[in-house]
Simulated assay, not measured.
Amino acid sequence: MTSDVWLPIPPDQIEGLPEGPAYRFWDGGEEFPADPAECALYVVPYMKSGETGLRPLPGMRAVQVVQTLSAGVDHVQPGLKYLRPGVRLCNARGVHEASTGELALTLVLASLRGVPDFVRAQDRQEWLGGFRPALADRSVLIVGYGAIGSAIEDRLTGFEVARVARVARSARTTERGPVHPLADLPALLPEADVVILSTPLTETTRHLVDAAFLARMKDGALLVNVARGPVVDTEALLAEVGSGRITAALDVTDPEPLPPGHPLWQAPGVLISPHVGGPTSAFLPRAKRLIVDQLDRFVNRRPLRNVILTTGETVR
Rank of each mutant, 00 (worst) to 15 (best):
P260L: 01
I272G: 00
P255H: 12
P255M: 14
A221I: 12
V209P: 03
R84C: 01
G269E: 00
G244C: 01
A192D: 04
E160L: 14
V194C: 06
A239P: 01
M60I: 06
T202G: 11
T204Y: 11
G229M: 07
R286H: 10
W127M: 12
G129K: 11
G79D: 06
V43E: 00
L258Y: 02
T204E: 15
M60A: 09
A192P: 04
V195T: 15
A239D: 07
D74H: 14
R172C: 10
G229A: 08
A187W: 01
A249L: 09
A227F: 07
L156T: 13
R24A: 09
A92S: 08
L197Y: 00
P56K: 00
F118S: 15
L304W: 04
L237Y: 02
E256C: 02
H207F: 02
V115H: 09
C90T: 05
E240T: 03
G278I: 11
E153N: 10
T2I: 13
P255L: 14
K81Q: 12
I291M: 15
G59D: 08
L182F: 14
Y145E: 08
R302W: 05
A110N: 14
S243W: 05
G177N: 11
D219A: 15
V276G: 06
I291K: 03
W127P: 11
H180M: 12
V44Q: 06
A267H: 05
A192F: 00
D154W: 06
L290H: 00
E97R: 03
A248F: 03
L69A: 12
L17M: 08
P78T: 14
P10F: 13
F159V: 02
L250A: 12
A249H: 08
A162C: 06
P56A: 03
V87I: 11
H75F: 14
E126A: 14
T280S: 14
P45C: 04
R132M: 09
L182A: 13
R55E: 12
A162H: 07
Y82F: 15
R120V: 09
I142W: 08
P58L: 07
Q125N: 13
A171W: 03
T205F: 07
I196F: 03
R166N: 11
A192L: 01
L201I: 10
P303F: 01
R206C: 05
L109R: 05
R124D: 15
H180S: 15
R316A: 14
F32N: 02
R286E: 14
H180Q: 15
L222V: 05
L214E: 08
V194E: 05
V292C: 05
R124Q: 15
H275D: 13
P279F: 02
